[in-house]
Amino acid sequence: MTAGPRRALGVVAAVLVVAATAPHAHAVDQSRGRPGFCTSDTGVTVVVDFQQLGGTTLVRCNPQATSGTGLDALKGAGFQLAGTQRWGEGFVCRIENRPSAVEEIPIEGDTDYRESCVDTPPASGYWSYWHAANGCAWEYSQWGLKNRAFIQGGFEGWSFSLNATADTNPAPRIAAVRPGTEGQPCGGSSDEGRPSSTNPNEQQGDVRPNPAEQNSAQRQQPPPGGTAAPDTPGPATASGADPAALPPPKPRPSAGTPAPAPDPDHNVAFAGGENAPDVNEVLRQQSGASRYAPWAAAGLVVLLVVAALLTARRRGRARDS
C-alpha cells in the first residue's frame, strides 16, 4: 500500500523536472527556414496545403544544403508538427496544430470526427505526403517522411486528404516551380527520391500510386500511410497486409519522363507563415485549460495518497491491537 503512492510521487516529480526544462516554442519557428520559395538549387521548398481544413496555404524554404529526410525538410523549414502518440513522428498527425483536437472533420461515417493523435489517423482524413523536382508534377510519396531524402532544389508537399480515394488524393495546389524557373522543363531527378535506406522493409505498407498514373479500378482507400514511415513496424500492418509480403516498389513507367508541373499561375494564394499564432497559446485557448487545474490535481493526488497511507496505517494498528 505504501509503495504505490511513493511511486506516484516519483512520477509526478519526473514530469515536473522534464517539463520545467522545456523551452518555449512558437508556431512557425521563424528561426528556421525562410518564408516563400527557395530561390536557388540549394535547399528544399516545403508546401503545406490545408485543403478543406481551411487556412492559407503555407510555403517555406528550408535552405539546408546537405541531404536530409522529409522530416528534416519539414522541421528545417520551421513547421511545427505532431506525430501520433502511438507511432511518434514517423506518422505526421498535425501540422501547425491542424487538424486541431477541437476541430470537427467531416470524415466518411463520422461527420464530427476529432483527431486526437493517439493512434493512426483514419484513411479518410490524414496528411498526404508529396514530392516533386523543380518544374515537375507532384508525386504521391510511397515512402514515409523519415525514409525519403528530399531533392535539392525540389519540393516537399503536404496536403490534407479528406475523404479522398487513392485516385483523388489532392496534390498541393501550389505548382512545384520556383519563381524564375517558369517554363523550364521538368528537371530530371523527379523520380522517387532515393530512400535513405535501401531496405524494402521500410517501405510503407500500401503502395499508393500517383493519381495521375493510376487508372485501375476504384478501390477502398486503404488506411493512411501517406506519412507512415514506421520506425516501429505497426502502422504498415494497418493496411491489413503483411508489409514483408509486399513486393518492392515497382519502377515507375513515368520515372524517366516525369509530367511537367502545371502552370504556376493557377496557384492558390499562399503565405510564408510569418503571422501564424503561437501554437502553445492556441492550444491553451482551444482546450479551455485552467492554469490552476494542474495544481489542484497535484494537490489532490498528494492529499489522497497521504489519506490512503494514514487510513492503511490506522487499520494496521487496529488489527495489531
Partner: peptide, 9 residues
C-alpha cells in the same frame, strides 16, 4: 508538439 506542462481543465 512542443514540450510544455500538460494542461488540464
Amino acid at each position: 508538439l512542443t514540450l510544455s506542462w500538460p494542461a488540464l481543465s
